[in-house]
Simulated assay, not measured.
Amino acid sequence: MKIKEVIVVEGRDDTAAIKRAVNADTIETGGSAIHTRTIEKIRLAQKKRGVIIFTDPDYQGERIRKIISRQVPGCKHAFITQEDGTKKGDIGVENASDEVIIRALSEVRTEMAETAGEITADDMLENGLTSGPDSKERRIKLGEALGIGYANAKQMLQRLNAFQINRDEFEAAIKAIDKERE
C-alpha cells in the first residue's frame, strides 16, 4: 500500500513500523519539543503532498498532534487505540501490528478549521459522554467506533465537530455502544 501523504510520527521506531506496514515517507518530531525546522518541514509537506499526523495514543502523542494541528491547518489524522498500541506496558505506534497501522491509515480523518458544530454539549450529556459514572469508557468506545481516538469530554466534542462527524454517524456509534452493553 503506497501512501501519497507524508506521515508525521514521533520517532525512529514509529517510522520503522510505518515502513514495515506501508510504502510511505515520514517526518519525525523527535518528541513533544518540536523544533521550528520540523514545523517548517511539515508545512512544506502539507503544501506539496498533504500530511497525516499519526502519533502515539497517549498524553504526549495528543500534545504533539495539537501542536502540529494549530501550526499546520488541514492535516489528516490517523489514530490507533491504546490497546492496539501497547506491548509489554509500552504505548506507541511502534507497537501496533501492520494490520492495525494499515487500518488506521485507511480511516484517516481531516480536521476542518471552521466547523458548524453539528454535535453539541447537550448531545454529549444526553448520551452519557460527560459527567457520568461510565462516561470515560463511553468516550473511549465512541472514539474507537468513529476512528478519532480517545479524548476528554471537552476535546471529544471539539474533535467530533472538527472531523465533521455528522449526526447520523454519531447516533449510529452511540447505538452500537448501547447495544454492546445489553
Rank of each mutant, 00 (worst) to 15 (best):
G11M: 06
R181Y: 06
K76R: 11
K76S: 11
I52T: 13
S69C: 12
E182T: 14
S131H: 15
G30A: 12
G11H: 13
R138E: 09
D90V: 01
P73Y: 02
D84P: 09
K66T: 13
V6H: 00
D56H: 11
D98I: 08
V51D: 01
R181C: 00
A116G: 06
E28K: 09
G85W: 07
K19W: 03
G11D: 10
I34E: 12
G117I: 08
R63Y: 06
G30W: 10
R43E: 14
V6M: 07
M156N: 02
F79L: 06
T86R: 15
L157F: 09
K2D: 06
T130A: 12
T29Q: 02
S131G: 10
R139C: 09
K48L: 14
I3C: 09
G85Q: 07
T36Y: 08
K87Q: 10
I7Y: 04
I64A: 01
E111F: 02
A96H: 10
I39K: 11
R139Q: 04
K179W: 04
K76H: 13
K141V: 00
L105R: 04
I91M: 13
I42W: 07
R65L: 11
E10C: 05
A16N: 00
D178V: 10
S69I: 11
C75I: 03
Q71S: 10
E40F: 10
V72N: 15
G11S: 10
E144N: 07
G85C: 09
K4N: 14
I67M: 04
L157K: 11
Y150C: 02
A113Y: 04
L146N: 05
A121R: 14
E137F: 10
D14M: 03
E94T: 00
E111S: 02
I68E: 03
K41T: 07
T120F: 01
E99T: 01
L129C: 12
Q82A: 08
D13E: 14
A17I: 03
I101L: 09
V72F: 08
A96C: 06
P133D: 12
G61L: 09
V6S: 06
I80W: 05
G92H: 05
M124T: 08
K87H: 13
I165L: 05
A24W: 01
E28Y: 00
I53D: 08
I177T: 08
E126G: 11
F163I: 09
T110A: 05
K66L: 06
D123V: 01
M1H: 10
D13Q: 15
R139F: 01
N23L: 00
I165S: 07
A121C: 05
I18W: 03
